[in-house]
Lab assay of single mutants.
Amino acid sequence: MATGGRRGAAAAPLLVAVAALLLGAAGHLYPGEVCPGMDIRNNLTRLHELENCSVIEGHLQILLMFKTRPEDFRDLSFPKLIMITDYLLLFRVYGLESLKDLFPNLTVIRGSRLFFNYALVIFEMVHLKELGLYNLMNITRGSVRIEKNNELCYLATIDWSRILDSVEDNYIVLNKDDNEECGDICPGTAKGKTNCPATVINGQFVERCWTHSHCQKVCPTICKSHGCTAEGLCCHSECLGNCSQPDDPTKCVACRNFYLDGRCVETCPPPYYHFQDWRCVNFSFCQDLHHKCKNSRRQGCHQYVIHNNKCIPECPSGYTMNSSNLLCTPCLGPCPKVCHLLEGEKTIDSVTSAQELRGCTVINGSLIINIRGGNNLAAELEANLGLIEEISGYLKIRRSYALVSLSFFRKLRLIRGETLEIGNYSFYALDNQNLRQLWDWSKHNLTITQGKLFFHYNPKLCLSEIHKMEEVSGTKGRQERNDIALKTNGDQASCENELLKFSYIRTSFDKI
């Protein structure tokens, strides 16, 4: 039985969820670079991206490699990797027998973001014989899940209580170790020597080791999670996991709180800001991140802002960003909400898709409305799209047979046209069989910064309504002859009103 693990408890099935942008060198404390989270699957090609990484700022997932063999891993080693800020997950990587050479110096898994409450997941690794993470000293947050690894031993010899604050939620089941077939031998045991430290858990006094050649490092209890030197002297209180010299914040392997210019500090002093819960960055760093993602459509890219001495992905609820200094300031009234469309555009074809934009005031991208039916549609669209004030790209209304009016965009005031449909149009209306009105132009103002209007096959939309939009939106004169079809717009509506004058002759039985 794995020490510190839980057996036999019912657990939810383990679901495996399925960018080499360097964020800056980590400095003297770390020998390499800070790398983003990685999802490495199918083959070993991307694994080489770990070569210079000291910190993975995010998670590391290595999974679904069915053609790899043990010899493929023999020359692979990433000794610079010290810390993973989120979680480490391995799933069905064939041929991998140990992690001792792959990650010989991995010391800390912070667990800032977890995989279903777990910071370390080893699942269905069919050839893994031992973990071998002999320098792993601290899992700051989260638990361990090690399950269905039929060859995995050296679990009962690990004292997880020396690595985690609590072992109650560890789930370590259905491994070879369960069948008591392992016969784990710690260093020196074969020669009758006791080389590794022994600890007591559940009444068992057991030597602690990761492999037959690597003991588990056990520091004096007084050192807590700070770690200790090879001689057993406690590291500085700002260290986490390990250090090369005692009581020196510049000799830590990793930091308990924050890293700044080669030393570990309790908090980031001005003019620095907390970033990702582990390091200090200056304003320029946060500003660069903001600008890199301002026009990016890459998933996970955030326009970072500053709030409460932190550089964070977005302002919290009730705050909006001051564009001059990136500071989050309290909103006066309802907060603006910028919604970034991942692929640059979004099609609204149902109430469900409209709900995804609920509360958005600025759309960074283009909207395509293609709704053919739905219950209580006008009210639903207004509830979900009615706060949109600005669209950076274009607005396209296409084959939306259920629409009679666009009044559900009740606050839309600006279409920038930074991206144009077919390279020309910022407003595009095609084949809307029941569209009769755009907006009530006596109450609604709309500016279209650039781009043209396109109207074709809107049989109940009168040309007068379209011409009014040209005047109000500032697009009059931009359109070419064929942009607004004269014969297919309003051709099934009563669009022309003329005053009919009647004269009559009164007659009676005795007068003409």
Rank of each mutant, 00 (worst) to 15 (best):
H28R: 03
P31H: 12
G32Q: 13
P36M: 15
P36K: 09
G37P: 13
G37D: 08
M38C: 02
N42A: 09
T45K: 12
T45I: 05
R46L: 05
R46T: 03
H48P: 13
H48I: 10
H48V: 10
L50T: 02
L50N: 01
C53Y: 02
C53S: 00
C53V: 06
V55L: 05
E57A: 11
H59N: 06
L60Y: 00
L64M: 10
M65F: 05
K67E: 12
K67I: 11
T68P: 06
P70A: 10
D75E: 09
L76V: 13
F78P: 00
P79D: 09
K80Q: 09
L81Q: 00
L81P: 00
Y87V: 00
Y87L: 01
L88H: 00
F91N: 06
F91P: 00
R92T: 06
R92W: 15
L99M: 12
P104T: 01
L106Q: 00
T107H: 04
T107K: 10
V108R: 05
I109N: 00
I109C: 00
I109R: 00
G111P: 00
G111D: 00
R113F: 08
N117I: 02
Y118S: 04
L120S: 01
L120E: 00
I122T: 04
E124C: 03
H127L: 14
E130A: 08
L131R: 01
Y134R: 10
N135R: 08
N135K: 08
L136V: 04
L136Q: 02
M137L: 07
I139M: 04
T140C: 08
T140G: 06
G142D: 02
G142I: 01
S143F: 07
S143G: 09
S143W: 13
V144Q: 01
R145I: 10
I146D: 01
N150T: 07
C153Q: 03
A156Y: 14
I158Y: 04
D159E: 11
W160V: 01
W160K: 02
S161Q: 14
I163K: 01
L164C: 13
D165N: 05
S166V: 14
S166F: 11
S166H: 02
E168A: 15
D169A: 04
N170R: 09
Y171L: 04
L174I: 10
N175P: 08
D177Y: 03
D178I: 07
E180Y: 07
C182Y: 13
I185V: 13
C186G: 08
P187R: 04
T189I: 09
T189Y: 09
T189Q: 08
N195F: 08
N195K: 10
T199L: 13
T199V: 07
I201C: 14
T211V: 04
S213H: 06
H214D: 03
Q216L: 09
K217R: 14
V218N: 09
C219A: 04
P220F: 01
I222N: 07
K224G: 08
K224F: 10
C228G: 15
T229V: 09
E231W: 03
G232L: 03
C234S: 02
C235K: 00
C235Y: 01
H236W: 01
H236T: 04
L240Q: 06
N242M: 07
N242L: 11
C243E: 00
S244F: 15
D247E: 04
D247R: 13
D248T: 04
D248L: 06
T250S: 10
C252I: 00
A254K: 01
R256H: 08
R256P: 04
N257I: 01
F258Y: 15
D261H: 13
D261P: 09
R263N: 05
V265H: 14
C268L: 01
P269T: 11
P270E: 09
Y272M: 02
Y273I: 05
Q276S: 11
R279N: 06
R279G: 04
C280K: 03
C280V: 01
F283A: 01
F283N: 14
S284P: 02
S284E: 14
L289S: 08
K294V: 10
K294W: 11
K294A: 15
K294N: 01
S296V: 15
S296G: 06
R297V: 08
R298S: 11
H302V: 10
Q303S: 05
Q303H: 12
Y304I: 08
V305S: 06
N308D: 09
N309D: 06
K310S: 10
I312P: 12
S317W: 06
S317E: 05
S317H: 04
Y319F: 08
T320P: 04
S324W: 11
L326E: 08
T329A: 07
T329R: 14
T329V: 06
P330F: 12
P330M: 10
L332S: 03
G333D: 08
